[in-house]
């Protein structure tokens, strides 16, 4: 077999074992699904009472619910890489992982993505179901109706608009999972880089708390459009909009060029994240002090 095929097989095996391990204790899915549903429901009530029939920054109630449904998925399904990585570092398990001939960063990536996949799929389906129940339909595509006048579209005004909405719905079904996957990749590399600071520091959780809190405010709980304009201008240069905001925005207000722009941004940050992860790992593995015995 060629080297490339061998590498792909190793990547596949890593993803497969991560997935199998996740499926080995299925009871956890119940917990994740329940918390997710609870979160979405509570926030949908908040938006229902605060928005009513009005809208803020172009988001009405239905859009806000869909936004929240998608934006929470990176947090619930793809937001825990840091903990498992840090745990392996602190327990000294990394001693085994470092004595393998593989590319450490790549191996970790495939294994963790594999283990995140079941959560991602389940929450996407659950989110779809909850969203339909709460809002009674998909949010309209911006291309068809133009923001933020949604009322016209829901009454089904023109044939062309309806057709465009149909196409947009299909594209959206393609783009949202893709964007979520990319969000997981960006999230992984950034959290990997953060967790590798354990090579230098005994306790590095503070970094992650800060990272997570910023991610929560920027894009997860609130769309970027809700931020003051000055803040918006700053955050577009950070990776945070490309974690939760990108897939959620594509879902709530689909528009082809906007979606492509967001996907491109995610790709860019995936590459930057990968470079950063490799850099931190290379520097850190020279400083390593493996805990215990």
């Amino acid at each position: 077999m060629s080297t490339l095929r061998m590498r792909l097989r190793a990547a596949g095996a890593a993803a497969a074992i991560g997935l199998k391990d996740k499926l080995a204790y299925r009871i956890n899915f119940g917990g994740t699904m329940l918390t997710y549903a609870l979160f979405v429901f509570v926030f949908s009530r908040i938006w229902a009472s605060s928005l009513g029939d009005s809208s803020i920054a172009g988001y009405n109630y239905s859009m806000m619910v869909w936004y929240f449904i998608v934006a929470e998925i990176p947090l619930f399904a793809l937001g825990r890489f840091f903990w498992t990585l840090s745990r392996d570092m602190k327990s000294g398990q990394v001693a085994y992982q470092l004595s393998r001939p593989y590319d450490f960063v790549a191996y970790q990536f495939w294994e963790r993505i594999g283990s995140a996949l079941p959560d991602l799929l389940i929450l996407m389906l659950e989110g779809l179901l909850i969203g339909l129940l709460l809002t009674g339909g998909f949010p309209p595509a911006l291309a068809a109706v133009g923001p933020p006048d949604i009322a016209a579209a829901s009454t089904g005004l023109a044939g062309t608009a309806a057709a465009a909405t149909g196409v947009a719905a299909w594209l959206r079904l393609l783009f949202v999972p893709l964007s979520l996957l990319l969000s997981g990749i960006v999230n992984f590399y950034l959290q990997f880089a953060l967790s590798m600071t354990a090579f230098w520091l005994e306790e590095n959780e503070a970094f992650f708390w800060i990272f997570q809190k910023i991610a929560l405010v920027v894009g997860t709980l609130l769309p970027i459009e809700f931020l003051p304009e000055a803040a918006q201008r700053i955050v577009v240069w950070t990776p945070f909009p490309y974690i939760a905001y990108a897939p959620a925005r594509i879902m709530t207000a689909f528009e082809l060029s906007g979606a492509l722009r967001l996907i491109a941004g995610q790709l860019l940050w995936a590459v930057i994240g990968l470079a950063l992860a490799r850099l931190v790992f290379r520097a850190g593995s020279r400083k390593i002090a493996v805990n215990g015995g």
Binding site: M1, M6, R9, I17, P101
Partner: peptide, 11 residues
Amino acid sequence: DSFRLLGAIYE
């Protein structure tokens, strides 16, 4: 399962 993974890792 672990053996299968290790087999793939060691190509």
